[in-house]
Write a protein that binds this DNA or RNA. Structure first.
Lengths: 241, 241
DNA sequence: CTTGGTAAAACTGTCGACAGTCGGCAATCG
DNA sequence: CGATTGCCGACTGTCGACAGTTTTACCAAG
């Protein structure tokens, strides 16, 4: 519990309770105020947040669709716990999406896209030099989000956004130390160079390398992370048809 | 408005009201008993189905996450209307996922996988020979789902499942005529052959061809399908950050 | 000390109700 | 006659409550 990260905007207080609750839960999960596998009680949360159960329920459903929570019928919601295999899967899917995106992007690499990406890398480098780990991650994700955006497939972008929540979870949950600012900078500049070259092969190589580094960086920290596999028969829940 | 399809009552009283409502809505949308862009009233639906608004709301949120509905704050839920661009995007993402899947599958093509896929192709051929268009589509999707499954990445499979709902929408919404049984059969056998050969290039070529055919088959029927773009500023909703 | 069963407590799924808000319509004004 | 403004109805967002089920606590027997 404890206080939710940043206080909600001074904007308008009473609008979109669901989204406010969702943000609160997201932050609480990522900052590990809720432990992986922990059960969340609807009534407890609604009491703590001072709202009724309805918005809490909807927010929980939202987080479930984003892969941060898991619901078991009649049991409630549990914080998603990722094991090593699931972690690999997440990064493999990321690779899948970004490979496709950079390929599409290379085909239609406009000056606008180039400018936006370059600028975002600068922002990222600036963030990497600072101490705010969260901001560094966000700016990094934003760079990749821009790549997906300029690739020109909105559905692809949505798939990435869906995945990005789990990605955030993986990264913040496991990463203890941070990449060196230099590494981050050069790693992203390589992507820009590959795009400038216009060569699909170079792009693919660059993105493979880039994501490989990120994956290794996260995976190496997975000793005993959290185990979500207990009672399931390991096959049936995968193919319920 | 207009009353929904079949008489509402007669099928409730089991558990999982939410899922039942979701299934009902899904079928109604796919079978075009609700027209694209049409607004769905929560109270209307809850009256028709004989349940309260809570499960209707949750089901609608579920369908929203699956891309079948769109919610506008304070306005309610609307049936998703796909324009030509969104249609292209869906098939492009499908290509992205299946390319990756078949690549992974080729690396670990077990006898089990081979057997299961062959069997499913047979089931599909059988279905293609019949008259049930829905079953043909389902068996086709199931074949591809099996491919994704045996590729060994559950997260990838989930991404495909998410997409498959929209895929179903695209296919059933637009396709007037059906592919010839022969075409379906040979098209899938080519995939099996490519997998048997173990060549990544052959696999990629096969899946590109396969999905290209399916896409062309659907896209060619898109004259005036449904236009979802009206009041949005076309840029802001894509990059809200 | 362990084990098995029963009862209480807590929780989820579902329901009906209320208030604020949005869109449409009509009356009014220029 | 057209545009503007105020009103009305409908609907969503949110709330508190109830019933059935699951979990936990407790007690007794081995």
């Amino acid at each position: 519990m404890a206080s939710p990260t940043a206080a909600p905007r001074a904007f308008i207080q009473q609008q979109n309770l669901v989204e406010q609750v969702a943000d609160y839960l997201t932050q609480a999960i990522i900052q590990q105020h809720f432990l992986p596998g922990e059960r969340l009680s609807e009534v407890q949360l609604s009491r703590d947040l001072g709202v009724s159960r309805a918005p809490v329920r909807e927010a929980a459903r939202l987080l479930e669709s984003r892969g941060l929570l898991i619901s078991k019928p009649r049991r409630g919601f549990f914080v998603r716990a990722l094991n090593a295999v699931e972690l690999e899967d997440v990064f493999d899917l990321r690779l899948c999406l970004e490979r496709h995106a950079i390929e599409r992007l290379a085909e239609r690499y406009t000056a606008d896209a180039q400018r936006a990406l370059k600028q975002q890398v600068e922002v990222l480098c600036e963030a990497a030099a600072g101490n705010d780990g969260t901001r560094r991650i966000e700016e990094d994700l934003q760079f990749h989000r821009l790549m997906l955006h300029y690739a020109g497939n909105e559905r692809l972008l949505r798939a990435f956004d869906d995945l990005s929540h789990e990605l955030r979870l993986c990264i913040t949950l496991i990463t203890k130390t941070h990449e060196a600012p230099d590494t981050i900078a050069t790693s992203h500049f390589k992507l820009l160079d590959a795009l400038d070259s216009g060569s699909p092969d170079a792009c693919r190589e660059a993105i493979d390398y880039h994501i490989g580094v990120a994956r290794d960086f996260v995976v190496k920290g997975v000793g005993e992370t959290g185990d979500s596999s207990d009672e399931d028969s390991a096959d049936e829940d995968v193919l319920p048809r």
